[in-house]
Design a protein around this nucleic acid. Structure first.
Lengths: 236, 236, 236, 236
DNA sequence: CCTTAATCGAGACGGTACGTCGGGTCTTCGA
DNA sequence: TCGAAGACCCGACGTACCGTCTCGATTAAGG
């Protein structure tokens, strides 16, 4: 996300360093007339947002407070982000965007299981809190909802689709799967607990879900049988 | 916020207490002091809230506008409801609290199927819009979340639990079910689409979910087989 | 506003009539059936008003707080007093209505001196605080102003007029006096300090005023001379 | 209340500081950060306040209505003035701050007479109405009272003190004057009528007061005599 | 005794204004 | 150019009192 990271970190080491302007001495072409955009601002904003998110939560955190904490002006925030959800989204993706990978072995059923375990762990931690705020805000504000789907939901579903189709192709899964519905059957209950908070997001929960769904979509009795014992195979 | 609000809303929205006005008959004389609460106000407020919900949506609707539309004062609203979500909740329950019934035949699998069909239809309509707002607000505001779970989520899950346990007892469903997880597997994906809005809530979707889950939890191959054809049995 | 307010206050001006209950014995038609007014309520209200006046001051004291403190309902207060100033007025008159008497010796100049001394002492104490609140409220609210003038200002000025006219008649004071202006010259500066609070209301202040005015209005050089030493004659 | 308000109003209403905008010329660079205060807003607010004062009077005029009339936001008002009295005070001083000048001829007694005539005319007109509201509010609210004394009462009394001391020095007035009390004897009765409204503020009234007081403070019989005829010398 | 009428408490109610918060926008200066 | 400071309008917040309006309960005089 930040292509100037190297030059950045030298600044960041000492945040109290006042002569940020010596940039132009070493880099030359990039340094045009006028004050260059400060990357430090972005970092300060994201850092401030993260802090406030933890201190006050999504709703109580305001653009105003972020700006103050970051030592930035509100105008600057509005220049780079359309609303507070966008800031949180960026902070979230920067920190956790790569935390829910798919592994691709020769058993799709196992891959799904591994993913579920990772995913429930992510949702159960701090990223889950941010995600819940973003999802909720996305319900109340269409623009935020679009961003949330585009940047978070869709990419992950695409991976899942790929995996499930591979499983169908390999005969591991039933041929008549409603792929979309199956993805929803896997992810849906996780978000349900994340948002409604009627019960905790545990590893056991993820495995129970995986168990039920695998029994329902595995093509062969053997695969079904394997799934049926999944919850017990790996103690929490 | 308003200490009476919580107690109030939980009392007033409870659909199982039809004779709310007869408080004073059984309780002591002290309860009849002062001017009694005007029922007309309550009705006006709920009607106004419903109108504004449709006109502007959950987020854009304000306490102020409800009061104005209802011809009531803000203080009166704050006297009876702790926040706007509580008003919406009460309006919602009054209108749709009994719209997702459970039928209890001798086949639990069929009962679940019937419920899923009814439920997806409710979520796909106006009640779904209100529910989404309430759920989202519940994520952002703990007090609202409590009310949402207590008044909406829990009662429905209790019914589902009863049904599933009956199925287990009758041998129709597998004996080693994780009942809570199965309920989540059924409801979760519905709320997931309701809130994330990545795809529509159709009858076919409900049946696909039911199909997957039933295959995973039915005890006998025959039952599993029945489920496997469920989606096709009833054209949309 | 409240047509009974006027009638009320005229009654209340005379605090020395405790047996209001015996109305029906002498009067006839006016005394109807029904529950008689509770004197206890009146006492509670006046006591509560006095307490709150001391605790919070005139502005911060509200009808609501008086009612609560008195254990009375707001309606009861509004039934008997048109506004909070009327309550304070009644409480004030009951406590201090007779605290600024005129003595009538054979020297009007001495009488004025004695009155000034008494008056400045009253204004400088708790009654002064109440009086200031009443006067200020009377400026901002015409109805209160009327009551203040009628019940407090006018009676005292009438006494003063009587005294001054006597002085003129006896030849002690100049014959061409503008009596009204002289009364204003005596009372005015006292209220000025009471309201503007730029300096304290001391006995010395009262004597200084008396000194200046007496020199200006005494008929004979001897009288003038007597006044000229008045401030010193009685050490503070 | 608003810590800037106090400092502000005392700065801005000082009529002896015409070049308020050139602050930054002499002070440091730090003062010019941010958008400068809009003078137009100030003007609009004061104009609106004046209009509403005439239309509704001091008590019925609200901050809200001023803001609306001025096309300003309430926050902006609260930023610059601590309360409505401060706004009225500023509006008042802007319009009438210089309307009660002191002339200094070689006769202090004549100067006082001239001032009394001017002053009673001011009090009897629109400025008197505003002054009454400010004074009354100052009684009920200590902060307002402070401002009223500091910005209005004290400066005028300082002039009067100067004049009286000159008269004493020149031998025109008695040497043993209690200067403060004499000032109170002159101003007090005017404010008394202004606030209590028991009689009108006429030129004749001012002259009567002047007459009485001058007789009391003039040093020589001749001066006393002059004063004694003052009321007749200048027909109203 | 038993109306009948007034008073009292409690407290709901519509209203107006309060003083504050945050959202976006804009204006100026300095880098 | 960009960015910080901060003024500005706007809309809503939740609260405080106002003055009015039911209620049930209480209290006497008069029938």
């Amino acid at each position: 996300m930040n292509e100037r990271g190297g030059q950045k970190s030298s600044t960041e080491v000492d945040p109290s360093d006042p002569q940020e302007r010596s940039d132009c001495a070493d880099t030359s072409a990039a340094c045009k007339r006028g004050r260059p955009r400060s990357e430090a601002v972005k970092e300060n904003v994201l850092r401030a947002a993260n802090e406030l998110l933890d201190e006050r939560g999504f709703k109580a955190m305001t653009i105003e407070s972020i700006a103050e904490r970051a030592g930035a002006s509100k105008v600057t925030l509005y220049r780079w982000w359309p609303n507070k959800a966008a800031i949180v989204m960026e902070a979230f993706l920067a920190a956790y965007g790569a935390k829910t990978p798919w592994v691709h072995t020769d058993s799709v059923i196992d891959d799904l299981r591994a993913h579920m375990i990772v995913f429930v762990k992510v949702l159960g931690g701090r990223p889950g809190v941010l995600l819940a705020g973003l999802a909720a805000e996305g319900v109340l504000d269409a623009e935020v909802g679009d961003a949330f789907r585009t940047l978070w939901i869709v990419p992950r579903r695409a991976e899942a689709t790929k995996s499930l189709k591979k499983g169908v192709a390999s005969g591991e899964l039933r041929a008549d799967l409603d792929v979309e519905a199956v993805i929803d059957a896997l992810y849906g209950p996780m978000y349900y607990r994340l948002l409604v908070k009627h019960a905790p997001l545990t590893r056991a929960y993820a495995l129970s879900l995986w168990d039920v769904v695998m029994r329902g979509i595995a093509a062969t009795p053997e695969a079904r049988e394997r799934a049926g014992h999944g919850a017990e195979r790996t103690p929490k």
